[in-house]
């Protein structure tokens, strides 16, 4: 909830005249549409909205949204966005980054924007590959990913964006995927969160990492493989026939069967978005034995960086006068007389 006044817009108002340069079939198109569909619902004002990105296919995003946009340099978008927010905290900032941009070259900045809690929405398009540079393995590529730079398969262990974000101190973690109809809801929740809201969006790079997310994102059987989380609701999936429970002995999550809708007796957990420990378990839940946790995994706001900076500036200025002439003549001074004139 950044923009104070709600503005009436339509999806069309958020389209630019720029030719979109993504490959046909790229998941980025679907994300663009989801965002353009969400912004009018938020009552967002194009004049007050700023999309800031790094470098990558995903980072071309700002050119295609009719708002203010800043396509910066590889990995550093969080730093530009931090400066812009400190200069004008009223701006509604959306950050767009990729798995390479945000977790390789820009991992440091991503960590700090999250821990500082600068109020903005951070969308990390995770296609588990370097798209723009033609398909090298990225820090989120699964072990064994074959790519031009890893011809017989990658061997480094992938980073988990949401776990990284939580570990960095993020207070909002959302997850969605490009073509999901629920993506706008996740974006809206992120926007409603005051502070740095991190959204991992699985995105299909049709050219260099085609359909890697099909195991959970494919429409067929999606019910069984996706756990859409809702605050205050039990963690049910597979048409409410399965749920997620806490094994109190091992202190870990487990999948339990739910019969006749009686999730209570099956011990299914009710999702509490402010529970950081459960959020951590949901993020780390391995796909395969478990469904993919999607939606709002964690949402527990705390004071933002820019509010603290403004507050500090106010306190530091209290009772002080911004008189430059006095400042220049401060400290231990002496006067050389003659026709001395006091400059103060």
């Amino acid at each position: 909830m950044n923009a104070p006044a709600k503005i009436e817009t339509t999806l069309k108002d958020w389209e630019t005249d720029q030719e979109v340069r993504w490959c046909p079939g790229c998941g980025d198109y679907a994300i663009l549409k989801a965002v353009q569909r969400t912004l009018p619902q938020l009552g967002a004002d194009p004049a007050n909205t700023v999309f800031i990105s790094g470098i990558g296919c995903s980072s071309r995003f700002p050119y295609y949204i009719e708002s203010y946009g800043f396509h910066t340099i590889h990995g550093r978008a969080p730093a530009f966005a931090t400066g812009a927010k400190l200069a004008n905290p009223d701006l509604d900032v959306w950050l767009v980054t990729g798995d390479g941009d945000g977790l390789s070259i820009g991992g440091n900045h991503l960590m700090h924007v999250l821990r500082r809690n600068v109020n903005m929405q951070i969308m990390l398009f995770n296609n588990e590959i370097y798209g723009l540079t033609k398909g090298q393995a990225s820090p989120t590529s699964r072990e064994g990913t074959k790519s031009p730079s890893t011809p017989i398969g990658s061997y480094d262990h992938p980073a988990r964006p949401a776990a990284f974000a939580l570990g960095s101190g993020a207070r909002f973690i959302g997850r969605g995927f490009d073509v999901s109809k629920h993506l706008p809801d996740v974006l809206k929740a992120a926007h409603a969160h005051k502070g740095a809201a991190f959204i991992e969006i699985f995105q299909n790079c049709i050219v260099y990492n085609k359909d890697v997310f099909n195991d959970f994102a494919a429409p067929k059987g999606a019910e069984d493989r996706q756990l859409w989380l809702e605050n205050g609701k039990p963690m049910l999936f597979a048409g409410d026939t399965k749920g997620i429970a806490l094994n109190r002995e091992t202190l870990s999550l487990e999948v339990v069967d739910v019969t006749d809708g009686d999730w209570q007796s099956a011990g299914v957990i009710v999702h509490d978005v402010t529970n950081r420990s459960v959020a951590h378990m949901l993020i780390e839940m391995p796909f395969g034995p478990f469904p993919m946790a999607l939606g709002v995994l964690y949402d527990d706001p705390r004071p933002t960086f820019e509010d603290a900076v403004i507050e500090e500036r106010k306190r530091a200025s209290e009772g002080k006068e911004a008189n430059l002439a006095k400042l220049l003549g401060k400290g231990q001074t002496w006067t050389v007389s003659g026709t001395a004139q006091d400059p103060i």
Binding site: I52, F70, T72, I73, R76, A79, F80, A81, T82, G83, A84, K85, L86, A87, N88, L91, H109
Partner: peptide, 10 residues
């Protein structure tokens, strides 16, 4: 980068 971001914002 933050300084450039601030300049961008005025």
């Amino acid at each position: 980068c933050a300084a450039i971001g601030a300049s961008y914002a005025g």
